Computed example of a mutant assay.
Amino acid sequence: MTTETNHAEWRRDQPVIDMHTHIGVDHLEEAIELMDRNGLETMVDISAYSGETFDEFVEAIADYPGRFGVFGGFEFEDFGEDGWLERELERMERAVEAGAVGFKIHKRMGLVYTDPEGDVVPVDDERLAPLFEKASELDVPIAFHTADPKAFFEPLTPENERYAELSENPDWWWGDHENHPYRWWELIRQLEKVISRHPETTFIGVHFGCAAEEVGYVADVMRDNPNYVVDVSARLPEIGRHDPAFVRDVFIEFQDRILFGTDLGVRETLMLGSPQGFDPTHEQAEAFYDAHWHYFETDEAEIDHPTPIQGDWTVDAIDLPREVLEKFYVTNAQRILGL
């Protein structure tokens, strides 16, 4: 993009929060540079660190008050074994005391993690319930990355519309149903069950409720469950394929429960929403953010989305009102994450 939006000057005066990023502990200065260059006040790392990695990250960001937040994570490799639950509940208490703004459950739940019997653990396994109850007690949200784009469950052939991305990330293909027994809709419905079973817990469905191809479905789940929040990270390519007037109406209806996030990765190699097979420059990262601003702040049609490797198509922008943008960029994250 080469032109600014009508909201650009206003936005630069806002403490914009990117609540879905992945930052290496040795790249905090670079993250600060990127924030300052792109008009952001805060980045939240949602990598779901645990153990020493979490401790090191929390210690490092303490030198930059107000600029970073962090989600804690769980360790599921020994899920269901004696002592596992007690250990993870204690982990939650320590992490919140250290400053964690929430906890994230990775997409490996429902796809990879197994129980002591060797069965893949479904997303709605009731053995997870104490974690959700604990989150409510601690007044922090649980973020879920469940499943992946629908195409990641389809045959891995050049005809797959996400073939380029899957070729770059072959371990993201879930079409082997012998090893990954749950299909896309099964996983999404499992997440819905979790949300409805625990109305006192705030859940964040990352990547637009993990179902950006089904915006209407996500809106229905949000209507039925006031405790459900979504972010938009790395899903503008999918959201933007829907009718812009319809998407705009959804954003306005749920203006208090949608969060701005990009899935930017600031590590050895910058990641612009998805590993892209090359090492982006800071200028390309600026264009990445610029594409987000244009999608949310203009009514332009057939524009480039931020992450070309996620699909070779254009999207239609949704031109959100400024009062909605303020909630989306800033105040929703402040309220829900306690930033």
Rank of each mutant, 00 (worst) to 15 (best):
T2N: 15
T2A: 13
T3L: 11
E4L: 14
A8P: 10
E9S: 15
W10P: 01
R12S: 15
V16I: 00
T21D: 05
E29P: 05
I32M: 03
I32W: 08
E33F: 07
D36I: 02
R37T: 12
L40A: 04
V44K: 03
V44L: 03
D45K: 08
D45Y: 09
S47T: 15
S47F: 14
Y49T: 05
S50F: 14
S50Y: 15
D55K: 10
A62I: 02
P65Y: 04
G66V: 03
G66E: 00
G69E: 02
V70H: 10
G72F: 01
G73D: 02
F74G: 03
E75R: 13
E77T: 14
D78N: 14
E88I: 00
L89T: 07
R91G: 08
V96Y: 05
A98F: 04
A98D: 04
G99P: 01
G99E: 09
G102V: 09
F103H: 00
H106Q: 08
M109P: 08
E117K: 04
G118W: 11
V120N: 00
P122C: 04
E126P: 10
R127G: 14
R127L: 08
P130V: 07
K134A: 01
E137Y: 01
L138T: 04
P141K: 06
P141M: 02
P141Y: 00
P149M: 07
P155V: 08
P155H: 07
R162N: 15
S167Q: 15
P170Q: 02
W172V: 05
W173R: 07
G175Y: 05
E178P: 03
N179M: 11
L187V: 03
L191I: 03
K193G: 10
I195L: 00
H198E: 03
V206K: 05
A212P: 00
A212Q: 01
E214W: 15
Y217R: 14
V218P: 07
V218G: 09
A219Y: 01
V221W: 00
R223M: 03
R223H: 10
N227P: 03
Y228F: 15
V230Q: 01
E238Y: 13
G240L: 09
R241D: 06
F246N: 09
V250Q: 14
E253N: 07
E253K: 08
Q255A: 14
R257C: 01
V266K: 12
F278L: 06
D279I: 06
T281R: 10
Q284H: 11
A285H: 12
A291V: 05
W293F: 11
Y295A: 02
A301D: 14
E302G: 13
D304P: 14
P306R: 11
T307I: 02
G311Y: 05
T314M: 12
D316K: 06
A317C: 11
I318V: 06
L325H: 02
L325Q: 09
K327D: 06
V330Q: 03
A333K: 00
Q334K: 10
L337Q: 03
